[in-house]
Amino acid sequence: MKQTSRSASALSRLSLTQQHLIPSRCSSTLVPDIIPFNQGTKYTPDYSNYATTPHGKIVSYFHDIALDLNEQTKEANIVVEIPRWTNAKFEIDTKLPGNPIVQDTKKGKVRFVKNLFPHHGYIHNYGAFPQTWEDPTTEHHGLLGDNDPVDVCEIGSKILSTGDIKRVKILGALALIDDGELDWKVIVVNVQDPLAGKVNDINDLNDKCPDY
């Protein structure tokens, strides 16, 4: 299967970023059996979504979920932070113990994204690759990393849930600049989605789903 330069670049970037973090303590052969545990009131600063095992142990969405990157199949695991068509800006907190998913705040208030007509909220499932990190001390293309896990935009048809761990196929990546920092967005599709069997890169996506 021939990779385009864009999808190959995304794979190379993930291989590099995961090297900064500790090895996984979860199985790297299967998507781990994680049960999200909610604490606090949703849409308030005290809300936290923790990853727990079936035995009730808290594990880190950031460190303990296996990325399990397969460069031959272009597959990896993701952590879902924000379901499609919702507005609340949830993200893995890399500083809190246990690294739960929390709602981002600005000036003490929780953040929501605006609607972009005719859509509502995020137009895709949004999340991050576990065990990856954009180094804020290393320059790429003259820009420093944003000190967060690498972001993903999952474009399958199913609305996923905060805390879901999904196996995805990597199609390509967009490099954005956010407040002077390099902020990658990797385009992926759930391997269980019917679209996954029809597309292998961004060019395929343009052919199968024009303007998507």
Rank of each mutant, 00 (worst) to 15 (best):
Q103S: 05
G108M: 01
N206H: 13
E139D: 08
N190M: 00
I78H: 06
T29P: 02
A196M: 05
P97T: 06
L176Q: 13
G127F: 08
S60Y: 09
G145I: 02
S28N: 07
H20D: 10
L16A: 06
F37E: 09
H141P: 00
N49G: 00
Y61R: 10
S12L: 02
V59T: 15
G40Q: 01
D207Q: 15
F37L: 12
H124K: 07
T132G: 07
W133E: 06
Y47I: 09
D135G: 02
L96K: 15
N49I: 03
H120Q: 12
S161T: 02
D104M: 03
I170R: 03
F90V: 03
I123F: 10
D178C: 08
K109E: 14
F62T: 01
I165H: 01
W184V: 01
K114T: 12
G98A: 11
K2S: 05
T41P: 00
L21Q: 07
H63V: 00
L176W: 01
D201I: 03
L143E: 03
E91F: 04
L30C: 08
A175Q: 05
L11G: 04
S60C: 10
D201L: 04
Q19F: 02
F37S: 10
L11V: 14
A175F: 07
F62W: 11
I170V: 15
L176Y: 03
I123K: 08
T94Q: 11
G172D: 03
S9W: 01
